[in-house]
Design a binder for these strands. Structure first.
Lengths: 226, 226
DNA sequence: TTAATTTGTAACAAAATTGTAACATTTAAA
DNA sequence: TTTAAATGTTACAATTTTGTTACAAATTAA
């Protein structure tokens, strides 16, 4: 079992217990003790699942959840809500606000584990494979859209395929031949220089102002994301 | 809210309570008092969701659940398990054996309702309602009518099927091949360009004045709602 | 039956995308 | 520094893709 799990919870003892046990089970885990930090950290951490406490010192779990759903790159992030006393109205609000499941404290770790498994099983087939993420970039294969920090970036077909290709292995340097083979239809013959031009076009679209360069040129080798 | 719900539960009082309330909320409900009957009735009833008691006179809920999963037509049937005392080991087994959620008796009807909504929303966005909605658009499958902001829009048969198809997954980009397969009868052969013309017709009908474009063209990929 | 509607395709128009050449700039080696 | 190779940049014509219209055939309703 693996995946990235983020926890927003203000009781350190719970964090410690859960985090330790999840890591023992092969998950990569990170956490925040309050809502505002959590929202920031989330983007960096890029989790596959979020454990969210209902009562937090600053924002309520519901508010965080709604906030998250607005963010394009977290539209489909599964959320399990942790509620303190299991007041019924709360539970319902939680489920209606886009929470995938909830758990009433105190809970056993086994129970939590079962819920996580169930939620990941349901949500993974869609989100994990269909959204490619790297840094602040997100490519949605289903909707054929690309965002950088929530701002949509319009790409032409070849630019899109090119970026999609790089995103399957970001950081890896691809030669022009490799790029040609994977991004262009099998039979066509195009000059290797053509790639340079498309890279240029992709750069132009993707490099919004105030953003760092996203495509690296490796002289005499090829290109990669960075 | 509508959909078909089947209940397998040996306590008549619970059946009565749940069935009555679900029907009041627009669901079509049927039930059985034991596992073997239930399995038979299921096929006839073709539910969208199953409420399954953990302890039954003949088969256990788990056994029924495993049985159901073997049947191809019920592989994806969402199941909510009703457990009597909430013994933890049981819960875990339940979730691992393909149950989508569970509820510990005694439960309130509101809580049950929230769970049902959540599970149906996840598993089968279509069956939850026969009305497909997206933005200010509404398609009534029963009456075969389409409205935009309460104003009825008259569509030809193909336009209707086309829109219905898009509405099952709005925002998702479909290729012309996918559209052909899903919207046209299986055997017919029509040119891919034909779709473009129908899209144009659908656009013309659906794009009332003062309204934003509803159909997005994704060059070299296909179309989607937006 | 006739009339009306729906349907698929062809033909042309408009728009977007693509590949390449030509020239500019950068980089690394001599 | 000079030089050659590699890459960046720009412009543009050719090609591809999509939009639009018209129309005849097919289907349905009257």
């Amino acid at each position: 079992m693996n995946g990235r799990i983020f926890i927003i919870e203000d009781e350190p003892s719970i964090i410690q217990l859960v985090q330790h046990n999840l890591e023992k089970n092969g998950f990569i885990v990170s956490s925040s003790l309050n809502g505002n930090d959590g929202l920031k950290e989330l983007k960096k951490f890029q989790p596959d699942l979020l454990l969210l406490d209902w009562m937090l010192p600053d924002l309520s779990g519901i508010e965080i959840c709604k906030n998250i759903r607005k963010d394009n790159s977290f539209k489909n992030l599964p959320v399990i809500m942790l509620t303190a006393k299991g007041e019924e109205e709360d539970k319902i609000k939680g489920l209606d606000s886009g929470v995938d499941d909830y758990l009433t404290k105190p809970f056993s770790f086994n129970e939590l584990m079962a819920r996580i498994k169930a939620v990941l099983r349901r949500s993974n087939p869609n989100t994990v494979s269909d959204n490619l993420k790297f840094d602040d970039l997100m490519l949605d294969r289903i909707e054929k859209r690309v965002y950088r920090d929530d701002q949509e970036i319009k790409l032409g077909p070849t630019e899109f395929r090119l970026l999609e290709f790089f995103l399957t292995n970001p950081k890896r340097v691809y030669s022009r031949d490799q790029i040609l083979e994977s991004v262009w239809p099998n039979n066509v013959n195009v000059e290797s220089r053509t790639i340079d031009v498309h890279i240029r076009r992709l750069r132009q679209s993707v490099n919004l102002k105030n953003k760092k360069e996203l495509i690296r040129t490796v002289r005499s080798s090829g290109y990669s994301l960075i």
